[in-house]
Design a protein around this nucleic acid. Structure first.
Lengths: 194, 194
DNA sequence: TGTAGCATGTAAGCCGTTACATGATTGA
DNA sequence: TCAATCATGTAACGGCTTACATGCTACA
């Protein structure tokens, strides 16, 4: 059982006991709306693999629904799944976040690129951030004020704050690069780091 | 060639042309000091695998140094490596950062845990953040004011700003959880999300 | 003399992706 | 009727980790 397994298991919690559950397809959609922003949204194929595993551990119950010629397998969390999830939440070691930040990586090697190009990259990042922020904001609005989505709401706010903080830092870096000497020109291809 | 390959290749740039280069062991140490904070620090074994690959592409030159009975293989970036790296920096699609945030994930499922335990987790996160911040601050101090480390310095400042922003959000969440109704008590094990 | 640090690698295996394969249903 | 969406899966493979294996060197 990986963290991703628990994350997907967690998505099923929000359906409540009287729901039919979610299809793999729907699980993927929920993951795209929530998990994507601070964990990962696993590939469609991986969702099915995880569900098989969870069913194997009796943490999830699968029910096939045949309507016409099409089979839809719906997944619900079991009592055991709920207990296991709660135990994991309370007792597992909560690791430190892992960040893979290609913009920071390129900034590190800025000496090879020069402030100009670096600023282009940072501007691109600002655009991407604005786009993501919009998406997450839409998700937050979609949650409504329902008590059941109180915690997801908090997480979404966390995400928005993170995007805002990143945008501010990126803008700061943009200005810092202006002040840098040796800017405005490409270094020759054999120049060492300056 | 993965992003991690380029990241490790990038570490060699800072050695300059008149250096002997770095041993795999030293590369790992540099990665622990810098890459760790915004990319990954690959396992020792992976460092050697990556170096083999880079040497295979002629982006890195390896030189064995036999002192006594011990062999140390030192790696330097080649001209071709420098050009390839610069091209990658300028032309590769700079993806959006990927964040794996177990604290946010647990907060999402806060309904199963109750504000109390959640606050413990957030406090633990604040401790971890303070520790990381100290480490990164030490790295930044170690860089000195050498021009060669100007960009690494900027990245380190980015990291510090990120840690500070995270700490602030975590503290905000801590207070929000106080205001939440239904706190201060564990939900019964069969309670649905509240 | 023994332990921490320096130094290099191989093997097994997990997690997850992309590519592939198949087909039903809905609506323009 | 065609495309988008719903729906489920298998196969191949890549990237990375952990565990394992080996040995030197400096120093307390």
């Amino acid at each position: 059982m990986t963290t991703t397994s628990y994350a997907l298991l967690g998505l099923l919690v929000f359906e409540g006991p009287e729901s039919d559950g979610l299809s793999g397809y729907e699980i993927k959609q929920r993951a795209d709306q929530t998990l994507r922003f601070y964990w990962v949204s696993p590939a469609m194929s991986q969702v099915y693999v995880e569900m098989d595993r969870l069913v194997g551990h009796d943490l999830v119950a699968a029910l096939d629904e045949d309507s016409g010629k099409r089979r839809t397998r719906r997944y619900r969390i079991t009592q055991e799944g709920l207990i296991t999830l709660r135990t994991w939440l309370a007792e597992s070691d909560t690791g430190f976040p892992v960040l893979k930040h290609p913009v920071a990586l390129k900034l590190l090697l800025g000496g090879l690129l020069g402030p100009d190009r670096l600023q282009q990259i940072l501007k691109g990042y600002l655009d991407d951030l604005a786009e993501r922020r919009r998406q997450l904001d839409a998700v937050l609005s979609g949650l409504g004020s329902d008590d059941a989505y109180r915690y997801p709401g908090l997480v979404a706010e966390w995400g928005l704050a993170y995007f805002d903080a990143e945008a501010e830092v990126a803008r700061t870096m943009l200005h810092r690069l202006d002040e840098l000497p040796g800017g405005r020109a490409d270094p020759p291809p054999d120049a060492p780091m300056t």
